[in-house]
Design a protein around this nucleic acid. Structure first.
Lengths: 154, 154
DNA sequence: GTAACTTCTAGAGTCAGGTCTAGATCAACA
DNA sequence: TGTTGATCTAGACCTGACTCTAGAAGTTAC
């Protein structure tokens, strides 16, 4: 029921280096236990917490914020308001991030479509009329100003 | 119609340091022009590109990828397939990131709700029955295993 | 018993993406 | 004419989140 650092690394997806680093940084809920020979030994609940931890990390929560949270947890009951506030703060950040990404995504989809159309036309042009007059005079400028201007004005 | 580095910094939101850094890193579409006294001078199109650039950055596109893109643009027409592929690659990344964030968000919303309920009950308890038997025996464990377990199993 | 493997600690190195400093030049104003 | 203030270059420094190294010691398999 107890795991070595290597096993935890495998199961959590974190490196042994990262596990030691997280410990130094105070990111474990409980102090990591040692065997009599000095080696670290982990339990199921450590893995559970690490899973949460990496989930929060992947949503962009900083190690500092995770430490803040786990410190509140370590203090025990009575600070739930603070924990709630902390989670809400990150939730707001994540929501803002999603909105931002959605915005960029819309623009990129448009851009991709324009390239696709351009290529389709370009290939057709080459088949029918190699020196088509509508060909862009300066790909660079068209690229930035026409194809991407929605970014700047949106 | 031409702008100093300070003006560009103000309008783009990037620092003068960052602008010089971006230039060194080859992130400008055109080489930045200089006045006779050696000072940089920028044009509208540089601002437009910087706006695009920061949009892409804010969606997590690395400077390396932006450079890759702008290098294709600089090469002129003929590599639209590569540009398209590059944009699609990033689009996929952004989509994956959004899905990931949505997942974390769902979990956090649940967590927040649990804290809210807990606080509501906790306060009610305190009013009616200060030593309510349902009170959690170990906030720490409950916190990790009960409240957050959806993270590990979802 | 010895080779191969894992772990330990302290501390150095890495990478991205900037940020800041020093010392010089240049411009604007009273 | 002196004083701000903006800019220049080269290069050092910073932060966050690891990652790696060296040297020692314990573990496992044959």
């Amino acid at each position: 029921m107890s795991l070595s650092i290597g096993e935890v690394a495998q199961r959590s997806g974190l490196s042994v280096h990262a596990l030691r680093f997280y410990e130094r940084e105070g990111l474990f809920a409980n102090p990591v236990r040692r065997l009599s020979n000095g080696r670290r030994t982990y339990y199921e609940e450590d893995l559970e917490w690490l899973a949460i931890c990496t989930k929060l990390r992947s949503s962009g929560m900083s190690l500092a914020m995770i430490r803040e949270y786990i410190e509140l947890v370590r203090q025990g009951t009575g600070n739930e308001h603070q924990r709630l506030e902390l989670l809400r703060r990150h939730q707001d950040q994540v929501e803002a991030q999603i909105r931002e990404l959605q915005g960029t995504l819309d623009v990129m989809r448009l851009k991709v479509r324009i390239y696709e159309d351009h290529l389709a036309r370009g290939e057709a042009d080459r088949l029918w009329n190699p020196s088509h007059p509508d060909t862009e005079p300066c790909a660079d400028r068209v690229d930035r100003v026409e194809h991407f201007c929605e970014v700047t004005s949106g």
